[in-house]
Structure formats: C-alpha cells, structure tokens
Simulated scan of single mutants.
Amino acid sequence: MSQINQADQASTLNFSEKLRSLWAKPWIPSRYGKAPFFWMLSFVIFGWKYLYETPGTFELAMIVLSICLFLPIYLYSFWISGWRAVFCIVVILSLGLGWANYNFGGSSFVIFAATMCSRFQQKRDAYLGLFLVLATAALVSYVMKFPTYFWIPAVIFSIPSAMGAIIGERLGRANEKLFRKQEEIEHLAALAERERIARDLHDLLGHTLSVITLKAELAKKLFDKDSAACKKEIIDIERTARQALAEVRSAVLGYRDTGLAHELRGAKNTLDSAQVQLESEVDVVQLPAAIENIIALALREAVTNIIRHSNASACHLSLKLIEQDIHFHISDNGFRDAQKTPEIEKGNGLTGMSERVRAMGGKMLISIKHGVAIDIQIPLHSAQ
C-alpha cells in the first residue's frame, strides 16, 4: 500500500513539475516582443456592450468559454504554421460568427482570425487565407442576415490588420535569415582567420626551426675545430630565434609584413649555411603589399624545403614583371639521378602557398627536372 502511495506522490510531483516548467516557458516567441499582448486590448469592443447591459447567466458562461477557448489557440498560433494555422483560423472565425447575433464585438474574433493568416510561410498562402476569411465572413453574414454593425467592421478592419501582420511577419523572417547569414559569415571568417594564422605560423616556425637546427648542427661540428666560427653560428641562432619570436607575435596580431628584400637576404644566409649556392635574377619592381607578402612567403617555404628535403648544391631564383604579370621562379638541383626522382607530396606549406596564390587570381606550377621547380604567376592588378 505504501508503494502505491509513493508512486502516486511521484506522479503528482512529476505532473506539478511539468506544469511549472510549462508556466515558466515563454508564451510567445521572443521576436514578437510584447505586442501580441497589447493586441488583445481590442477586446474592449467585445466588452463594450456590457457597459450598459448586464449579461445573463448563459451569455456569461459563453463569454468565459469563448475566452478560455480563444486564449490558448491565440498563443499557440504564434508557434505554428501550415495546416495547424488553418485549424486555429477556423476555430477563431467560428467564434466570431457565432457571436454575430448576440454581440457586435464578436467582429474582434474575425479580425484575429484574419491576422493569423500571417502564420503561413508563403506570401501567396497568406493572402489566399485572408481572402477566404473575408469571403467566408461576408457570405455567412449575407446568408444569416447578420447585422451590418457586425460584418462591416469585421471585413473593413481585418484588411489593414491582416496585411500589416503579413508584412511584419515576412520582415521578421527576413531579418532572422539575415542574422543567420551574418552568424554563418562570422563563423566562416573565424575559420578562415584560423587557417591563415595556421599557415603563417607553419611558414614562420617551419623555416626558422629548420634554420636553427641546421646552424645548431653546424655549431656542433665546429665546436672542437673552430671556436670562433662556432661562436658565430651560436650568435646567429640567438638572432634567428629572437627574430622568429617577433615575427610570430606579429603574425598572431595579423599585421606581419617582413618584405621581400628581407626574405631574400634571409634566404641567401640560410642557403649559404647549407652550402647551397644561390643565383638570383630579381628585377626592380614596385610590388603591392599583398603580392609582395605572397612572394616572400613562397620564397621562405621553398628555401625551407630545399634545406630540409633536398641534396641541392645550387638554387636559382628569379622575379620578373612580364606584361603586367608577376613571374616568380625558384628551382634547385637536388635530384641529380633522374631515375630516382621522387613524387612531390604537398604538405601544409605548399598547400598554403597554392591557396594564397589562387586567392589573388594567380597560378602556381610545381615541376621536377633536376630538382623541384616552383613557378608562380600573379596578375599585378589583382592587388588593386
């Protein structure tokens, strides 16, 4: 017996919790604000009659029943669309027509039924629903010979109220779509920024750590043979590490601009340390900042790959302006045995380089002959 009582108490508590949670939830979607509650003030027309006439017991019961039926359907209509909206419209319209011979304020129900046509997603369906509500109200009023002080305000006031609701609803949906698009754009922008930072950090740290590793190995070899040269390499390691730290900070803040001249000097020093002879043909060209940054990063990535992955002894570099196109070329002789030429596997560096070039409307070609050759062509006007 006690178990049954406990089960009853548990079910009662669950029911009360459900009621409490239902009461705590918003009755109307937040995008409507408090306006739907103010719209219910139009029921002043429905109550006008009872300022000078006391309702009978039956009529009072019908008033209470009508309000109890109207309120939940009215609130529910803000959450639905489609055939559920049709159900709400039919019920509210029937309430209005049912009160026609007893209270001219029943036209308020007809007006509410007309405004509920705004719940349809398609504009065509909304205006069709409005037409059917007005036609039904007019036809039933004509057949049942309802008084003119009922159907005239029901028809006349329904038109501006419903059209305003339809336009407002469509505007609200358009704003929601716009907000969602803005959120999507912000999300994509954040992803693009993270990818940009990832590419830049890879280019910076991949190159710099390779240089530091190379110089550290060289310093280790020179430690017992040439202390002065070893000390010079250690000083270069410190300088490179400090420079890399500054560049990483700038890249994270999004305003890194090392410049091509700086990268050319760094490439020469790096290749010299790796005992790779650099031959360069660089025309004096005024490059836009965006293109200069892409070429500088491409040079950095190419040099990193040369000292990390190839056995090159020579490297050729050229930068020319040909018919309003920037042509950048860098190649090495790292694969001297043509029969053992490996296939190129694009890592993050080459992929990031290719993405930057395509973003500027350019082309990048990677080929292998005596070594890896990278050719980049970018239209000069793409940065304007």
Rank of each mutant, 00 (worst) to 15 (best):
M1I: 03
K363W: 11
A219I: 06
D332T: 01
A290E: 13
G98N: 11
R31L: 04
K34Q: 06
A289P: 02
R119Q: 12
A61P: 05
E247H: 13
M1A: 09
A138T: 15
L22G: 08
A338M: 09
L51C: 07
S354A: 13
A100C: 02
T213V: 01
M62C: 08
S2Q: 10
R173W: 15
S280Q: 14
A290L: 06
D8L: 12
L128K: 14
K123A: 08
D283H: 09
Y50T: 01
H187T: 12
L297G: 02
R256S: 00
L350K: 00
A241I: 05
G259P: 04
A298R: 02
S280H: 11
K340N: 15
C88L: 12
L287D: 09
L188P: 02
I212G: 05
H327T: 08
A241V: 03
T341P: 05
P36M: 05
A274H: 12
G164E: 06
T270L: 02
H202L: 01
G98M: 04
A189F: 13
I156L: 10
C68Y: 07
D226G: 03
P147N: 11
G259M: 00
I306H: 04
F157S: 05
Y74E: 08
W39E: 13
W99G: 07
E186G: 06
Y149R: 06
I197F: 03
E279V: 02
I92G: 05
L205I: 15
G362Q: 08
M364E: 13
R265V: 12
I234C: 13
I4M: 13
F38R: 06
K232M: 11
L205S: 14
L278C: 02
R196T: 03
M40H: 07
F43H: 09
K34Y: 10
T213S: 14
C315E: 09
